[in-house]
Simulated assay, not measured.
Amino acid sequence: MSTLSVFDLLAMHPLVADLPAGWLHRLAPHARPVHLVTGHRLFHEDGPADRFWLVHSGAVALDLHVPGRGDVVIDRLGAGAMVGWSWLLAPHRWRFGAVVAEDVRALELDAARVRAVLAADIDLGRQLDARFLAVAADRLQAARHRLVELYACPGGA
């Protein structure tokens, strides 16, 4: 991954790969390639949501602190995922925690700068907001399925 430019890495990520090159060039200055090792905590629940990641390889576990049980993993995100969307909405605080479950190679993006780019280009903002909303909707649907499996009655009653 290190021999590729940030632009190339953006162009390879499923979330933004089909965007026009001009838009990717606007996002590229606000991203940097990162290699994160297993066990590295990306963020804690209620911490400042000041960046997000486009994962190229590896896995990230999303967790939620449960009193008396500690941090409970609620989802696992892999290659092609976007980690973090709390940066999109004020007060820009993480709603979950996240820890690297398998070494990750990703692009880390500066949230404040990306928000400024999106505010300055309404069409790009609209396009990315729709994609971010689709990510959130997919994760909500996956959470619903996990809840149904968790609370399904034995024997299919």
Rank of each mutant, 00 (worst) to 15 (best):
Q141E: 15
V16G: 13
R51K: 10
G78R: 08
L109C: 06
R146W: 03
A79L: 12
Q141V: 10
V135S: 00
G39H: 02
A49E: 05
E102S: 13
W94G: 00
D123M: 08
P154F: 01
S57W: 10
G156R: 05
L77F: 09
H13K: 05
R95V: 08
M82A: 07
T3I: 07
L150H: 15
D18Q: 15
L27R: 00
T38G: 10
F52L: 13
D123W: 08
E45M: 11
M1T: 15
L24N: 08
A61R: 12
L64Y: 11
G68P: 08
W94D: 11
V34L: 08
G156A: 14
V6S: 05
G22C: 01
P14A: 01
R113K: 15
R69C: 01
Q127G: 01
D46A: 13
V66A: 09
A116R: 06
W53M: 01
H65M: 14
A112V: 11
E108V: 02
L9K: 14
L4E: 04
G58R: 14
M82F: 00
S5P: 05
V55R: 12
P29K: 13
W87P: 09
F52V: 10
D46K: 12
L150D: 09
A98D: 00
L133K: 00
R51F: 03
V66R: 06
I122W: 07
P91N: 06
L89C: 08
V60E: 03
V100F: 03
R115E: 14
H145T: 05
E45V: 09
L42W: 08
Y151T: 12
V66C: 11
V83H: 05
Q141T: 15
L42N: 13
L147M: 14
Q127R: 15
L128E: 02
A79R: 10
A157L: 12
D103F: 10
